[in-house]
Design a protein around this nucleic acid. Structure first.
Lengths: 148, 148
DNA sequence: ATTTACTCTATCGACTAACTAGAGTATCTA
DNA sequence: TAGATACTCTAGTTAGTCGATAGAGTAAAT
């Protein structure tokens, strides 16, 4: 399951990617626009900022902005940041490998083999989808939806 | 994350798939062989039985056996049974779709689009992998490992 | 009748997810 | 430079879930 934090983070980043890159957006406005509890969103944006994904400005006219081009922000980074490794089991993780105690032989573990496939497929998608490309997908889906 | 329940279930089923299909295996033996807390495994096997994946025999010489051919038992069913839908968000689920309250328009939701891709990729793998095919993969991996 | 082994319900502690509170700090503007 | 604005950060709280265990009950074999 994707946590609410990760979900809210993606929604907020997507909203920021849709704006003038030099125009900050306030927490309160983002929260209202995306239907996210304001204080909770605050926490999330702070995290993104401390990861270098967002920048912030204090005081009047302040708010949050993307720290990088939307082409260079990938979903994989966001999801890992809030929800940890993509692999369903630690022994199948690429970025955070941990062997499991109850495995007699790792090379012969069916669970690991199957879950490694899942993690690879997931990583391929999330590490291959940038904020910008997702924005494009949404736009195309929106057109299709209108023509229905 | 894959729950321990699902993980233990797969390990136990895989062990059963490796045996004479008419020779029951006791909870205690399975638990020892696969390093699973016996009482916990008991619960898991009971669940699998009530789903029609396992059969059981009571009394001396009793134990658990597969209720179907290992070719007809898919990981997708096991994982869904213990961990719920494969989709990272309910609105991207095929088998347990639930819309999300905070979505203004579902057709235009980036989170949903991306997560639907993840769920489709995961489902393709888990619904395409039977106990039997996984057994085969393990065997091949084991050979590769020995030749190293 | 006794042993064997599965069946089922209840419970428990630890942990985490989702959210909230509130005091603090930097920036702008009048 | 006072005061408003808006982010920063730490510390809760609450409800729910996960992993595991206990123990009484039932069915089958010998």
């Amino acid at each position: 399951m994707l946590s609410k934090k990760a979900k809210y983070a993606i929604k907020a980043l997507l909203a920021l990617a849709d704006r003038d890159p030099d125009e900050p957006m306030r927490i309160a406005d983002l929260a209202r626009r995306e239907q996210i509890p304001p204080k909770f969103l605050e926490l999330i944006l702070l995290g993104l900022r401390n990861q270098g994904i967002l920048r912030s400005r204090k005081g009047k006219g302040g708010g949050y902005l993307l720290a990088r081009d939307p082409k260079d922000i990938y979903l994989g980074q966001i999801v890992r940041m809030f929800d940890g490794p993509l692999a369903p089991v630690p022994c199948a993780s690429q970025t955070a490998y941990v062997p499991c105690a109850d495995c007699r032989s790792e090379a012969v573990c069916g669970v690991r083999l199957a879950m490694k496939e899942v993690r690879d497929a997931t990583a391929k998608i999330l590490d291959g989808t940038s904020l910008d490309s997702l924005r494009g997908q949404v736009a195309r889906a929106s057109l299709l939806d209108q023509s229905r």
